[in-house]
Design a protein around this nucleic acid. Structure first.
Length: 596
RNA sequence: GGUCUCGUAGCUCAGUUGGAUAGAGCAACAGCCUUCUAAGCUGUGGGUCGCAGGUUCGAGUCCUGCCGGGAUCACCA
């Protein structure tokens, strides 16, 4: 990368000229601001302590050194403490020629060592997927793609929460109020069907508790004495004992849910290499806890419950096993972490889980460390922010959730309406159009979510439909379609970017140079997104590249250009941009169309 | 209350390890299609980067305090 070469040379200069002892990481090289002359800028301020001269003089001395040292620098200027360097056009043209046909430009070949396990999605089987899950899935998917582009072998895994008290509640609701019914009968997706049962249970249970509280009980007493709660708990016991009838119903209802989930996943474009079920893993981790007790890392209370004291890490005591010997949430997470470590020997274990579980993962890592599992350091909690509505957080119980399927349907409709409004829709029933609407709708949705820094909470307003103009998925998809169209026309006229030759001197328009500079950034962007685990970096890069290309497209003729050398160069530039856009959007799980 | 996190234009968001005059989009207004796709491009207006200190050549970015929002601290998951 060009910045690195400059930084390296500047380092040499400081060390040779001034007897400094610095390494390239302490030299800041950035793009020159548009208002100044030059392409790249070296910040001089931090280097004057070695030269013991004014920033201007130092900049001047370094400038002439770099001019001498690096052949692709054509000139420099110094303003205050900024050394601005101008790159020769030949460099850019050579860069274009060398890279525009490379199918893997910016990506690193996959190394099988040190794989990365990425857990994401991890749904409960008592509620349909909503916008929050969508964010989780998209981040998990995109991160996996980005890590692959960074040369990692990636395993995508899902841990489905298919057991527990909440599932028993839906079973109870089914038995009580809807026996014999099946989703296909009711004409709805299986996950929706089961989700409704859960809501029905919660409403009934709430009413029941309110009645008991009105009769003078405290909230907690009311919860414990509620007949529905007792029945649900009883069902849980019978499930754990493996009672056939209970297990059968449980299995049937979960299948309904999976059929529904599969549809949603398919439409989102989400897949997994391995799916774990909590019904298989929930007993894991008990041996680890016992091991900790034996080692004296954990302790048993009189009632038989097992705890760990995290006081040394500035945390509280944490329960690891209940007094009746059953697991809690973290018990099984200890076990599954060990399982995955044994299965994959990963260099990194990523968990894409909401930021409400930060504490949980902090505890998990500390406890594993106390058990002598040094690989606990390889666990990374990719904690993403909540999707909020204008009224605040989404709450399943209050019905203030944005359903994933509904949202995707709306996106499709918006794509259709927008296309029709532009007068492009000649044949609405055509299969190709329908595919395009789906691509655009999903592109708009995915981009909308992924362009935001995953760590931050974000807002979604259902009243305002997701935009198709400006900094959006369809804008980038449009840019790609435009480029493809241009290339088709060029091919029809017998031109191709591959006709490009380096030995012919060609001037570069500032817009061309700007696009090239961005294309030159791509490998660095991929690396940065991998390092920061942030698809948003890719999304924002796509936007910047598309915007810059559109400016170029608007200002400069390509096929109408009379000078063939220029024409071919612009075709290569366009083709390169189209490929990078397609592949960068691919990292986000977004497809781009040939025409739109 | 303890811990963590966020606060940038009317709204939604960018802003690499501190660097030049803080950027986009949406919304508003004004322009550009006999010419490669106008889902585009150009221009105008819009900011005490929550507040107050500190660190230094330089702070939206780092430190401290305060204000405001959110999360979390369960024999729930």
């Amino acid at each position: 990368m060009i910045e690195r070469i400059i930084a390296w040379s500047a380092t040499k200069a400081v060390n040779q000229l001034y007897g400094g002892k610095i390494d390239p990481s302490s030299v800041v090289v950035q793009k020159t601001k548009p208002d100044f002359e030059g392409d790249f800028t070296v910040i001089i301020f931090s280097l004057v302590r070695f030269s013991k001269k004014s920033p201007e003089t130092t900049g001047d001395e370094l400038g002439s050194y770099l001019l001498e040292d690096i052949s692709f620098i054509s000139s420099y200027n110094v303003i205050k403490g900024f050394l601005n360097l101008t790159i020769r056009n030949e460099y850019w043209i050579e860069f274009l020629t060398d890279h525009f046909c490379l199918p893997d430009y910016g990506f690193i070949p996959v190394d099988e060592n040190q794989p990365v396990v990425v857990e994401y999605s991890s749904p409960n089987t008592n509620k349909p997927l909503h916008l929050g899950h969508v964010r989780n899935n998209l981040i998990g998917w995109a991160l996996s793609e980005i890590l692959k582009a960074n040369g990692k072998r990636v395993y995508r895994v899902n841990l489905v929460n298919d057991r527990g008290i909440h599932i028993c509640k839906t079973m109870l609701a089914y038995k009580k109020w809807h026996p014999e019914e099946i989703p296909s009968f009711a004409g709805i997706k299986g996950d929706k069907f089961v989700g409704q049962l859960y809501v029905q249970y919660e409403q009934a249970a709430k009413k029941e508790r309110e009645g008991l509280v009105a009769a003078g009980l405290t909230e907690e007493e009311a919860y414990r004495q509620s007949p529905l709660t007792r029945e649900a708990l009883e069902l849980l016991n019978r499930w754990e004992e493996g009672e056939t009838g209970v297990r059968e119903l449980w299995h049937t209802m979960n299948q309904w849910v999976y059929e529904g989930f599969d549809q949603t996943y398919r439409r989102l474009g989400i897949t997994f290499d391995k799916i774990y079920y909590e019904s298989d893993t929930y007993l894991l981790g008990k041996e680890l806890v016992n091991e900790g007790v034996e080692k004296g890392a954990f302790f048993k209370k009189d009632d038989g419950s097992v705890w760990v004291d995290l006081g040394a890490n500035n945390m509280d005591e944490k329960l690891l096993l209940r007094s009746d010997g059953t697991s809690v949430y973290i018990t099984q997470d200890l076990g599954t972490a060990q399982l995955r470590f044994d299965e994959f020997n990963p260099g990194q274990l990523l968990y894409v889980v909401g930021n409400e579980q930060i504490y949980h993962f902090d505890v998990l890592k500390v406890v594993l460390k106390m058990l002598g599992r040094e690989w606990a350091d390889r666990i990374v909690h990719v904690s993403y922010g909540m999707v909020e509505l204008p009224q605040g957080k989404m709450k399943s119980r209050e019905g203030t959730v944005v359903d994933a399927d509904d949202l995707m349907d709306e996106m499709y409709q918006t794509a259709k309406k927008t296309t029709a409004a532009l007068g492009k829709l000649d044949n609405p029933d055509d299969h190709e159009w329908q595919e395009l609407f789906e691509m655009l709708g999903m592109g708009a949705l995915k981009y909308f979510i992924l362009k935001v820094d995953p760590r931050k909470n974000m807002l979604f307003n259902p009243e305002e439909s997701i935009d198709f103009n400006g900094n959006t998925g369809p804008f980038i998809q449009y840019t790609h379609a435009r480029i493809r169209s241009l290339l088709r026309k060029a091919a029809a006229k017998g031109f191709s970017g591959t006709d490009l030759k380096t030995d012919q001197p060609v001037e570069l328009h500032p817009k061309e140079k700007e696009v090239l500079r961005l294309l030159n950034d791509f490998p660095g962007i991929v690396a940065e997104a991998g390092k920061n685990l942030s698809p948003a970096i890719i999304a924002n890069y796509c936007y910047e590249l598309a915007r810059e290309y559109n400016q170029f497209y608007q200002e400069i003729p390509v096929l109408r250009e009379k000078d063939q050398n220029k024409l071919v160069l612009r075709l290569a530039l366009s083709s390169f941009t189209g490929d990078v856009l397609r592949r960068a959007m691919g990292l986000l799980g977004i497809s781009v169309p040939e025409k739109m």
